[in-house]
Amino acid sequence: MKALKLLILGGTGGVGRQLVAQASAAGHELTLLVRPTTACEVPEGVRVLRGLLDERPRLDEAMAGADAVLSCIGMQRANPANPWSASRSPEDLSSATARLIVAAMREHGVPRIVAVSAAGVGDSAAQLNLVMRFFLATSMIGTAYADLARMEAVYAESGLDWLAPRPTRLMDGAATGRVAVVERFGTRAAITRADVARWMLDALSVPSWPDPSWGGRTPQISAES
């Protein structure tokens, strides 16, 4: 794949850090837009702009000249290990930022975006097991999933070339390269954040979205069993 100019949003999170490392190693030209108070260590040559997505001049500066956008924006809990922990993010974070991103992409003629969603969002909710349904009904996870569904709708209505991969349960660990698009997923289905990042980057080399093997623009991805 030829080197691309990529804007990475959410680049300091789990999947985002993997994206930055892998995309930089692959020779892509990267720009990150990072909140002023967020710690950020990046490989040499990665351009870091400090600002907020709703600061339009800063977003314009980050977006200008990009070939594609990779977004890992998602809600954060005060205690990530506790599904009932208070949210550190607005309840409409993913959908509200998607609207800002779409407007800037249109303004600057940036055609493609890959934005991380989650298995169980939208029309994949019927595949959730009883435990996950309980979490969605009683905890912040349900709020986050509802907002991810709204985010997907924003991109679907944008007229842009978009993908919103829905990974199964995220884990730490190295990229395995053994990733499959799955129609259904079980209780133990999982994927490393590094593999999600690799799938997102690999998708940029596909000339026409969605690839027939994906089954649509919201493919569920998981580690091969």
Rank of each mutant, 00 (worst) to 15 (best):
G215N: 08
S94G: 06
L130G: 04
L204W: 04
S124G: 13
I101H: 01
P207M: 06
Y145K: 15
V114F: 01
V196N: 08
E107A: 14
G173F: 06
V116P: 00
T168E: 09
T187M: 11
E183L: 09
A115V: 14
I113K: 01
S124E: 13
L204I: 01
P167S: 06
N129D: 13
E107M: 09
F134T: 10
V114R: 03
A98Y: 09
E107L: 15
M140W: 10
M132G: 00
D147H: 12
I113N: 02
F134I: 13
A203P: 02
S205F: 01
M171R: 15
S95C: 10
S208L: 08
G186W: 09
L201P: 01
L160E: 12
A118G: 12
D195I: 08
F134S: 05
M132C: 00
P212S: 05
P111N: 05
A180R: 07
L136H: 02
S205C: 07
P207R: 07
G186I: 12
S205N: 01
L148A: 10
A119D: 02
H108E: 01
V131L: 15
D123V: 13
A180S: 13
R133T: 02
A125R: 10
I113G: 03
R169D: 10
F185T: 09
R188V: 10
S139F: 06
E183V: 12
T138Q: 09
D123A: 13
R184L: 14
V181H: 06
L100P: 04
Y155R: 06
R188C: 11
A137Y: 05
N129Q: 02
A115L: 11
R198H: 08
A98P: 05
V131F: 15
I113Y: 02
A164K: 07
L170I: 04
G142F: 10
R106T: 14
L201F: 12
I113M: 00
R217M: 10
